[in-house]
Every structure is written in C-alpha cells, then in structure tokens.
Simulated assay, not measured.
Amino acid sequence: MSEKNKFTLSITESPSRFKNLEKMEVADLIRSINEEDAKVHLAVRKALPQIEKLIERVVGRMKQGGRVFYLGAGTSGRLGVLDASELPPTFGVPDTLVIGLIAGGDVALRKAVENAEDDPEMAWQELRERDINQLDTVIGIAASGTTPYVIGGIRKARENGLLTGCITCNPGSEIAKVAECPIEAIVGPEFITGSTRLKAGTAQKMILNMITTTLMIKLGKVKGNKMVNMQLNNQKLIDRGTRMLMEELKIDRETARDLLIRYGSVKKAMDEYQKR
C-alpha cells in the first residue's frame, strides 16, 4: 500500500464535515460539537466485544500479581496517566498497580516534548526499568494507531510474552496489527480536522474508564455499588464513608464515623464490626 493510500484511509486525519468554523456563531459551534460527541458512545458500543476480550484476559493476570501499563503520547498519553492516577484514591490500590507512561516523561503532561513520540525504542526501555514481567499487561493508546513510541513498546512487549492491547480510532492501523487484543473505536473525522483531543480523546477516556472500573470490581475493590476501599484524604470522602457505614451496618452517624476513623477504610470498618 502506498503512503498516499495510507493517508487517505486515516479517519482521524480526514477533513471535518463542518466548514468555515470561524464564521459560525457560538450557539452553532457548541450545538455542532455536541452532535459530533453524540456519535462517540455508539462507536464505543460497537467495540464492547473487543473491550470485554481484553479485560477478561487481564483479570486473571492481575489476580496473580500482574500490573497494567499504559503507553501513549500527547492527549492519549495524558489520558492514560490520568486514568492510572485516579485509581489509588478511588479504590485504595497502590500506584504501582496501573502505571501510565507518556512519551517525553512527566514534563509532557503539561508541555509538548518535541519528537518524543517518534522514538520506537524508548517505551520498552521505560518498561524494562520497571521490571516488566509476563504477568503484566501493556496497553497502547494511540488515536491514529501510528505512534512509533507506542507501537515500538507494544511490539517488544508482545515479543517478550506479555499480554498486549491497544485503543485506537483508526480501522486496520499498525498498532492494531501489533497488539494481541486491539480495541478500535471508530468515531469518524473530528470537528476540527485532526484534533483528536475531541471525539477520539472522549472515546479513549470512556474505554479506559470501562477497563479499570471493571478490573477494580473484579479484584474486589467495590462492594455492592460503593467504593469501600477509597482513601479518606478529605472531609467529603470521610462523610461519604460515614454514610456508607450507616447504610450498610444500620448504625448511627457517630458510631459509623468512629469506626471509619479507627480502621481507615469503609471495608476494614465493615469487616471489623461484623466480627463482633
């Protein structure tokens, strides 16, 4: 396939169906963006079987001590880091369980790092520095499906016997060919041509939410529908934990709060109370 044809097939780089954006009124702009956003959940729904396949494969590995690593650049990398960073306070897990790596390192979270995503060797080097092993899973996040940093890391991880997955918004992309469990959410051209921080980014965030929320539930970090392992690092969360204990144990507020403070988490407080 010629380079010209490859470019033609890149949906994430295809022209927006909207013209002369600078001439549109604010009401028309936001209504049009909303119309485009409405397509995202439909694209993600079509990818549910692929998402399920990856999660099912990951659960068993994590129950044996495996970790999940995200690889990404730009918006995709930032979304991976964001998802990973939200798990410890939400589910009380260590920050080494799901790790987000972004091309260019942490500085790239706030400022673009020139040419960082073009190095196909860097991701594997970073993974090796974290003692990657065959219980671990590596998930590449790349809207275009062509990012060398991500593809290189996924390829080496798979060659070394790790489970690999990817989240992309182009069909038949290079990363989907390299990853063992590809997820393709085809959201179509962006409102601003090529700006994958829009629909593609939204789709990626939705899929990341699905993956880690489901994993945490299957790892026993949720009881009923409650975050019983959340970190109690502010007053709002202490109040939420107190209400959980009141509802679950049918006890008064003062008793619930005392239990929560004493044991440090809703789950531990529940377990200790029920032993009485």
Rank of each mutant, 00 (worst) to 15 (best):
L29V: 09
G77F: 13
N20A: 07
K250G: 04
A269Y: 06
P89R: 09
P15S: 08
R276W: 00
L237G: 04
G220W: 00
K63Q: 11
V98E: 14
K226S: 07
E56Q: 14
K19Q: 02
L101Y: 15
M206N: 03
T8Y: 11
S32D: 13
K63R: 10
A176C: 09
K199P: 04
V266P: 13
T202C: 03
A185N: 05
R257G: 00
F191W: 11
L260E: 10
V93T: 15
A179P: 15
P88L: 13
E129V: 02
T146W: 10
L249E: 06
E129Q: 08
L163M: 14
S76V: 10
D106S: 13
K275N: 01
K39N: 05
L54T: 03
N170V: 06
N133W: 14
T168H: 00
A38R: 04
L82D: 08
Y273I: 00
A269G: 01
I51K: 03
Q231D: 13
T202W: 07
R158W: 05
L232I: 12
L101Q: 10
I251V: 10
F191E: 02
P49Y: 15
P182T: 13
D119L: 06
L249G: 01
N233W: 10
I139W: 09
Y149G: 01
L232V: 12
V222Q: 06
T212R: 02
K111M: 07
L101G: 10
D106C: 09
T137P: 13
K23D: 06
A116G: 05
E248T: 02
L82P: 02
L219E: 07
T147N: 07
